[in-house]
């Protein structure tokens, strides 16, 4: 079975760790605990005709992507760039950061994710979705919406 390294990046407090916890353990905590350095977790994704081990590197949140320790990012097969849909500051520099990752760490897939979709005002989700259409997917680590789908999508792309 093949293993692929996925690195989760994004600003602090956007819910990177919560997203992984939801995917790996199917748990969620409202408490915010800052990630220092990196945590590494693993989960096998079962696809129709192939299983794949995703080794997920959960990095410390930062507004400046250059501040992430380069050694964490070596040998990465794919990035997940997480932002918080309720905090525009967390997705304002998304294009710039994507360019940096592509330039320095090879032409690997970068998935842009808008977390905390559960906090969008119910009446304005479709309008907000249009505003956030530069993101690949909206997810909610709290409610679990689209989390499994996100990692399956990545797994499919990584084995193709």
């Amino acid at each position: 079975m093949s293993s692929k390294k996925i690195v989760i990046v994004g600003s602090f407090g956007v819910g990177k760790t919560s997203l992984i916890r939801r995917f790996v353990d199917d748990t969620f905590s409202e408490d915010y605990k800052v990630t220092i350095g990196v945590h590494i977790l693993k989960k096998t994704v079962q696809l129709q005709d192939h299983d794949i081990n995703l080794i997920i590197w959960d990095t410390e949140g930062t507004d400046e992507i250059e501040e992430i320790r380069t050694s964490y990012l070596l040998g990465t097969h794919g990035f997940i760039y997480v932002s918080d849909v309720t905090r525009p500051k967390t997705y304002e520099k998304i294009d710039e950061h994507k360019q940096y990752l592509s330039k320095n760490f090879g032409n690997v897939p970068i998935f842009t994710v808008g977390n905390k979709s559960d906090l969008l005002p119910k009446g304005s989700i479709s309008q907000k979705k249009e505003e956030l259409d530069f993101l690949d997917i909206l997810v909610s680590a709290k409610e679990g919406n689209n989390v499994q789908r996100l990692f399956e999508k990545i797994a499919k792309i990584l084995i193709s």
Binding site: K5, G37, H39, I40, K42, I55, W57, G75
Partner: peptide
Amino acid sequence: ESVISMFESRATHLKLDCVNM
């Protein structure tokens, strides 16, 4: 598992700070 994949028949010296495990 991630680190061992970096053993690509090369002589390297890599430092990774603050790894939680």
